[in-house]
């Protein structure tokens, strides 16, 4: 029954026009970035490399697909959660708003299974969005700009990764970015269980991300103790794969924090959804 229900949920996502807004948004934004980089990319890069030109000599294709992909992920990891929440925040509340929740919950399938299937469907949707992001940034970036060494600007200097040392880093970076986005999807799904309309969970999810990001970026000692536990702090964990050497402890810690958030949010969602009186 879980498989059939998950299939149903995927079907609903596939036929819902709003599901394509996220994917369309990613395609459009990346297309604009690629176009801008093609036209004025060197000027953009010189703003970054300018500070090192006194001491370093840059040779070869600096503005390559790898750098473009890195820039794109860095730019979009803030915006993609909105596109994810736009779909996953509607999975339960949308059914309440439409009235279909009454029909759905009178079928011989437990509420636990229904919510679990919605979670799996949101994971699959998030995976497709991540895949689209990866394809558009890495594959298309390399096709248009060619390949080459990746230059990453860090707070403590410039790190250059050799061309043959990059693909696996992107693979794992996207994997952990997927985990971050699943956390956002689960947050939106959980909030969706508390609402009877679609807008509330989407706005609330973005509000929470914004609040946590502000708390995380404020250099105030009072927030030092909670900052490491905020999921937003670990949404940039994909960047750890562009450290040399890799900080495995930090990566594992981020994964644990993100997984813990998913587990706790799912538990809250299950508790709420299983006791929810359907009054709509």
């Amino acid at each position: 029954m879980l498989f059939k229900s998950t299939y149903n949920e995927l079907l609903k996502i596939a036929y819902k026009p709003r599901s394509y807004i996220g994917l369309g948004g990613i395609v459009l934004i990346i297309a604009i970035i690629l176009f801008a980089m093609k036209v004025d990319g060197m000027l953009y890069i010189s703003l970054i490399t300018g500070q090192f030109e006194q001491s370093l000599l840059f040779e070869g294709n600096i503005l390559n697909g790898n750098l473009i992909a890195f820039i794109i992920i860095q730019m979009l990891i803030i915006h993609v959660p909105l596109l994810i929440a736009f779909v996953t925040g509607d999975l339960v509340s949308g059914e309440s708003a439409m009235g279909t929740i009454r029909l759905l919950l009178t079928k011989p399938i437990s509420r636990f299974t229904i919510l679990l299937s919605k979670f799996f469907a949101s994971c699959i949707y998030t995976f497709i969005v991540t895949l689209c992001l990866a394809f558009m940034s890495v594959v298309l970036g390399k096709l248009i700009f060619g390949t080459g060494d990746l230059m990453v600007l860090k707070s403590d200097g410039l790190v250059v990764f050799q061309e043959n040392d990059i693909n696996w880093r992107f693979f794992y970076a996207f994997m952990i970015a997927f985990l971050s986005l699943v956390t956002v999807a689960t947050l939106a799904l959980t909030l969706s269980c508390f609402s009877e309309n679609s807008i509330g969970p989407i706005v609330s999810t973005m509000g929470i991300i914004l609040l946590f990001t502000i708390i995380g970026s404020m250099d105030v000692p009072i927030f030092d103790s909670i900052r490491p536990y905020l999921f937003t702090t670990h949404m940039a964990a994909w960047r750890y794969f562009f450290d040399d050497p890799l900080n495995y402890t930090q990566i594992i810690y981020s994964i644990i924090i993100l997984l813990s958030h998913i587990a706790v949010l799912l538990l809250i969602a299950f508790l709420k959804f299983s006791k929810k009186d359907i009054l709509s």
Binding site: Y15, M98, G99, R102, L103
Partner: peptide, 11 residues
């Protein structure tokens, strides 16, 4: 049928 017969209108 509980109250209104609501369906997925996009299907």
């Amino acid at each position: 049928i509980v109250e209104k017969p609501d369906f997925y209108k996009y299907l």
